[in-house]
Computed example of a mutant assay.
Amino acid sequence: MARPKSLQHEFRRDEILDIAAQCFAERSYPAASMNDIAASCGTSKARLYHYYDSKEAILFDLLDRYTQRLLALIGQAEATAQRRSLDERAALHELIRTFLDEYEHSATRHIALLHDTKFLGEAQRELILDRQRDVVSAVTRFLTRAYPHRLDARNQTALTMMLFGMINWTFTWLRPGGAMSYPAFAEEVIALLERGLAPAA
């Protein structure tokens, strides 16, 4: 019987994923090598292979964990909305705050998700893409429930992608410690939705 992985082993894998995500963001996935990742980890390539047998294995584990995390955040937002008896709009607003809080701390993972999924093998790529579709479907449900007078079968996709367009690319311009914080930007997105999607007073 195989020996179970130790907590230290999993902790080290988490560290490797953090560093690899940074390498992919700075150099690009194709340009970053196992040597680069090992050097950034302060270890040898041989030692790195003890944890991952290829660069693609690192990328898949990175994206696998991150997409599971995004789906878990959606589940948490739904549970929070039920527990606090939030109305549908307040539930959507809470989800936006939750996503942007996550994005502030996982920019390099998000860059990998947006740019590097295409480098996975077919089966792994489809798994990650299916998770992304699940995230989009969930956000569409939140939006449709929050603004039922504005969303229907004709415009659901467009308005959902409009929302993602506002929040998904923050890593390109919204810097922690800058003129606007991630929480402040979340409130701006919410205010724009309310003014743009809410019925006229």
Score class of each variant (00 low, 15 high):
Thr43Ile: 08
Asp14Thr: 02
Arg13Val: 02
Ser33Ile: 01
Arg131Asn: 03
Ala107Cys: 10
Ala81Ser: 12
Arg133Ser: 13
Ala39Pro: 04
Leu92Cys: 13
Tyr66Ala: 00
Arg109Cys: 07
Leu100Ala: 07
Leu71Trp: 07
Ala107Gln: 13
Ala20Lys: 08
His50Ala: 14
Asp64Ile: 13
Ala31Asp: 15
Arg125Asp: 04
Pro30Gln: 01
Leu114Thr: 15
Gln124Tyr: 00
Arg69Glu: 00
Asp101His: 15
Leu70Ile: 02
Ala20Gly: 10
Asp116Tyr: 07
Ser33Phe: 00
Ser54His: 10
Ala39Arg: 12
Asp61Cys: 14
Val135Thr: 03
Arg145Tyr: 05
Gln76Tyr: 12
Tyr51Asn: 09
Glu122Phe: 02
Glu126Gln: 04
Leu113Lys: 09
Val135Pro: 03
Arg47Trp: 12
Cys23Glu: 03
Ile16Glu: 13
Leu127Asp: 06
Phe119Ser: 08
Ala31Asn: 15
Arg89Tyr: 06
Ile19Lys: 10
Leu73Trp: 09
Ile74Gly: 03
Glu15Thr: 14
Leu17Asp: 04
Tyr103Thr: 01
Lys118Glu: 06
Gly42Glu: 03
Gln132Asn: 00
Ala57Phe: 05
Ile37Asp: 04
Gln124His: 05
Tyr52Asn: 10
Arg131Ser: 01
Glu56Cys: 11
Gln82Ile: 01
Met34Ala: 08
Ser106Glu: 09
Glu102Trp: 12
Thr80Met: 10
Asp53Phe: 04
Leu120Ser: 13
Ile96Gly: 01
Thr67Ser: 15
Leu17Thr: 02
Arg145Pro: 10
Leu127Ile: 02
Arg133Tyr: 08
Ala77Leu: 00
Gln68Gly: 13
Ala81Phe: 02
Leu71Gln: 06
Ile128Ser: 00
Tyr52Trp: 02
Tyr66Leu: 00
His93Pro: 13
Asp87Glu: 04
Leu71Val: 09
Phe142Ile: 01
His93Ile: 15
Lys55Val: 01
Thr98Leu: 07
Ile37Val: 03
Phe24Asp: 13
Leu71Cys: 12
Ser28His: 08
Gly121Asn: 06
Leu120Thr: 13
Thr117Leu: 03
Tyr103Val: 04
Arg65His: 14
Leu129Asp: 01
Glu56Ala: 14
Val135Ile: 00
Leu62Phe: 09
Arg145His: 10
Gln82Ser: 11
Arg89Ala: 14
Leu62Pro: 05
Tyr52Thr: 08
Ala20Gln: 06
Ser54Gln: 10
Arg83Gln: 14
Lys55Pro: 09
Tyr66Glu: 03
Ile111Pro: 01
Arg84Val: 07
Asp18Ile: 00
Arg125Ala: 06
Phe60Arg: 10
Ser137Thr: 03
Ala72Pro: 07
Asp116Thr: 11
Asp64Gln: 13
Phe11Thr: 08
Ser137Ile: 03
Arg125Pro: 11
Arg69Ala: 01
Ile16Thr: 12
Leu70Gln: 06
Arg83Asn: 11
Ala81Met: 05
Phe24Leu: 09
Gln124Pro: 10
Asp134Gly: 08
Ala32Gly: 05
Ala90Glu: 15
Ser85Tyr: 02
Pro30Thr: 02
Arg145Ile: 05
Glu94Cys: 15
Arg133Cys: 10
Leu48Gly: 11
Phe11Trp: 11
Ile74Phe: 02
Ala77Val: 02
Leu63Cys: 12
Ser44Pro: 15
Thr117Ala: 15
